[in-house]
Design a protein around this nucleic acid. Structure first.
Lengths: 359, 359
DNA sequence: TTGAAAGCGCTAACAT
DNA sequence: ATGTTAGCGCTTTCAA
């Protein structure tokens, strides 16, 4: 134990065994006699020895580290997701290596940084995946899973909410509420999540014969959403219902509507979000929104990764997590109090959704 | 380049040089002729080679990874801090290994996990550091810095806001506003930050001859703060000013006051927080609070760590970052419109504070 | 069950 | 400036 660093050799010496014996004692499922195990463990205890994870990684070729790359933390959905990911990963005995990047920036550079660390897997959230990057991961044989995003490339795995269904539910709810003039505040146009929510919402409205539809870009930022809200609500004939690509923007839109423009929500304008972040439930907002079950999604992402790391699965699965419409007070409710979607009661979808989530 | 993994040997072979030559090309400040460098780089490019960080870590004895351990992400101060830390660390060429733990839980187990990864440093936020843990870090020679926390142990480094000054400013502001009956909603009693804010606040009030003072525990959680608010505001003679240990709780208190109890803020009760998180500025709240400059603190924490990792400094520095009182609308303002603290204008402390931060 | 020996991919003396 | 050699701390055949 020369100075500071205790190696397996130190333990071996003290226990009077070989380094291999020590190694085996720390390798689950290796064959060691209980006698040696006892002596080794005692020596290790005395010396405060724990195998060096870096050295182990080097010769196993597996680091037990997962890279998580996130774009922004302003939207509380991401910190929440990160927290769940960290917990799940820790539970599986993996470490979380965190990377951040501009949401729209090229993370080409970043990927080199990641690959260099020999991570066993990558979780990508709130970031644009180019097919070149997907290609690099495949070449390096590193499992990759997108969270809250998909790609056209069916080979890459992803975990998303059931965005189309969620957006449809919002459209139906708003329609049933008797709204006539609709608006959508978009996130980044490049994001699949935005695309899915927007097109499904739009489609449903069209099916219902709605022609009054406007769209503004909010770019997923608070400022962007505020500007969008101003443009929208100061039109000659403003919308009476606004669906925002996420809660983070919906909250901003509510603030502009009420405090800048003196509008009443939902009397003058209904506002609906997506995610059900914590602040959506605060009494100052009581935002009607579609839940995105963070914990379920985190679990699914980790499971997907583990399946490919440990089980050696093929990958390329698109997991879609259902989430219910959470009806609060930011959108006018249907007069009847009952709405059905696809023959299902929209007001009590909890059980159905939960059941589907299990599957 | 057998299959998948490209090593320096592959590059060496292709470039017709030794592995050392390759290594040197990727080591800043090593001596290589431009001719070999060219050939090596070309070969590396063609093969897609990048030195294996794990292997490098092993023989350098430095991993260029920093462990960051956080307790909760509910309070948006921490995600914000994390984001800044990630950015700063990335800029210094370090990787961030994220760990989470219960805020009050023993992270003894966790520390073993961390040490095993041979991290070059540890940043601890929102977590209780026992002296045993500090001892272990010292033994392992791993620099440690606390963020938003301190210990009595003067040997461990920390970066905090100037909590006593901030709390004093709040007391003075509230006093000047003509408040008579004060309350404090505490965070975790075990946290130094809470202690500093509470005692300084209390002390100032006492000096001013205030005797009407109550305190309730909020435990840094939204629910805890809500309960505290109910207990406080439903007393026969409720306080007319409440100082909360952080914004996260202050927002919860505002919600209870206004929506559950029908109180007007600040007419019926003034509420002040600490941190200046993003939502404090939202028009629904407009919370008066004390700024905790996240970016400056993150920078300071990283600097402190780097000083000890690269420069070999001794450690044991307690950095205190000043932060100004941000006056918004959740607390009644002094009639005069001018308050001075320690002979300084309280309303325009920005310049002074910023200047001090530089030092 | 155990130890000896080889090797994971890299860097750093040392020699040339 | 370059190659040779040794070694970071660990696991893992392979013999015994």
């Amino acid at each position: 134990m020369s100075r500071g660093v205790i190696t397996s050799a130190d333990v071996a010496l003290r226990a009077g065994v070989s380094r291999s014996a020590v190694s085996r004692c720390f390798t689950p499922g290796a064959s060691v006699s209980s006698k040696t195990r006892g002596r080794v463990m005692e020596a290790a205890q005395a010396l405060g020895y724990r195998p060096n994870a870096i050295a182990r990684s080097l010769n196993k070729g597996r680091s037990r580290m997962i890279a998580v790359v996130l774009g922004y933390m302003d939207n509380p959905f991401y910190p929440a997701m990160l927290e769940r990911l960290a917990a799940r990963l820790q539970a599986c005995g993996y470490r979380l290596l965190l990377f951040t990047a501009k949401p729209d920036g090229s993370c080409d550079e970043l990927f080199s940084e990641i690959l260099v660390y020999q991570v066993d897997g990558i979780i990508l959230g709130s970031i644009l995946l180019t097919s070149a990057l997907a290609q690099r991961c495949r070449a390096a044989r590193i499992p990759l899973v997108l969270v809250n995003r998909t790609t056209d490339d069916r080979v890459v795995s992803s975990v998303t909410a059931d965005n189309r269904n969620g957006a449809r539910a919002v459209a139906d709810f708003l329609l049933a509420g008797g709204h006539k003039r609709f608006a959508y505040v978009a996130g980044l146009a490049s994001s699949s999540t935005n695309h899915d929510r927007e097109t499904a919402f739009r489609k449903r409205l069209t099916e219902a014969g709605v022609s009054a539809f406007i769209r503004e870009e909010g770019a997923y930022t608070r400022e962007g959403a505020q500007d969008a809200a101003r443009r929208l609500l100061q039109r000659p004939r403003p919308p009476d219902a606004i669906f925002c690509a996420n809660d983070h923007m919906a909250l901003a839109v509510m603030d502009v509507a009420r405090f800048e423009l003196g509008l009443r929500v939902p009397e003058d304008v209904s506002i609906v979000g997506y995610d059900d972040v914590a602040s959506a439930a605060w009494p100052s907002y009581r935002l009607t929104t579609v839940e995105q079950p963070v914990d379920v999604m985190a679990q699914a992402a980790v499971d997907s990764l583990m399946g490919r790391i440990e089980g050696g699965q093929r990958g390329g699965e698109q997991v879609r997590i259902p989430g219910e419409l959470v009806v609060r007070d930011s959108a006018r409710r249907p007069a009847s109090g009952i709405v059905t979607v696809d023959g299902q009661d929209l007001w009590r979808p909890r059980e159905r959704m939960k059941a589907r989530a299990k599957a």
